[in-house]
Design a protein around this nucleic acid. Structure first.
Length: 188
DNA sequence: TGCCTGATGTTCT
DNA sequence: GAACATCAGGCAC
């Protein structure tokens, strides 16, 4: 897994589509499939690492396999998988996931049902109970584990420009699984 | 279906 | 004091 993640974010991002995340809460297991991602790195004006390391973004520089959780807009968390070499400030934002198992618990945490449970970056964090306590967490271990899965050939990954950000919008580093209902609906 | 806006807090200037 | 990698609800069409 370390080798898989020790690449630039824009290469890891499409390969994370179709991978699984396993989350343990109170002894219960939730599994989700990643269906939408965005790549960010230090050369990127929209990235939190663009202006160098700060106390907040420190875990983004922590090396491949770590989790970077940040708080935004006063009420939401988003989570990133840190990639590339330590000190690079390179990461992949998880934008949307699809429940595989433990969906009932996710709906309970979210207070919502159906697609609304995890079709956006802040929503999936709420559905998985991810908050700042998991910032810097090692993704090879529970309570939050990344499971690398090769994509099968029938899964089409679409690459587009990013959304929901103010800077460097034209960098085409957003990736999502074609035809998946959980991909956030604000497209292009 | 699609635009507009309020909520709300952490971080950085 | 302003910016912000968002969401949900309201209203117009």
């Amino acid at each position: 897994m370390k080798t898989f993640l020790s690449r630039p974010a824009e290469q890891v991002a499409p390969d994370l589509i179709g991978c699984l995340l396993e989350r343990e809460i109170d002894g219960k297991i939730i599994q989700v499939r990643i269906v939408e991602t965005e790549a960010y790195d230090e050369s990127d004006a929209a990235s939190h690492s663009y202006k160098g390391k700060t106390p907040r973004t420190e875990s983004m520089f922590g090396g491949p396999g770590h989790l970077y959780v940040y708080f935004t807009y006063g009420m939401h968390y988003c989570c990133n998988v840190v990639t590339d070499a330590k000190g690079k400030g390179s990461a992949v934002l998880i934008r949307a996931v699809e429940p595989v198992s433990g969906k009932e618990l996710m709906e309970e945490l979210r207070g919502r049902n159906g697609l609304e449970v995890s079709n956006g970056p802040a929503k999936l964090c709420q559905a998985l109970g991810i908050d700042k306590r998991l910032d810097g967490h090692d993704l090879t271990k529970l309570p939050l584990k990344l499971i690398i899965k090769p994509r099968d050939d029938s899964t089409e990954v679409i690459q587009t420009k990013r959304i929901g950000i103010a800077q460097a919008k034209d960098v085409p580093w957003r990736f999502y699984m074609s035809g998946n209902d959980y991909v956030s609906r604000t497209r292009n």
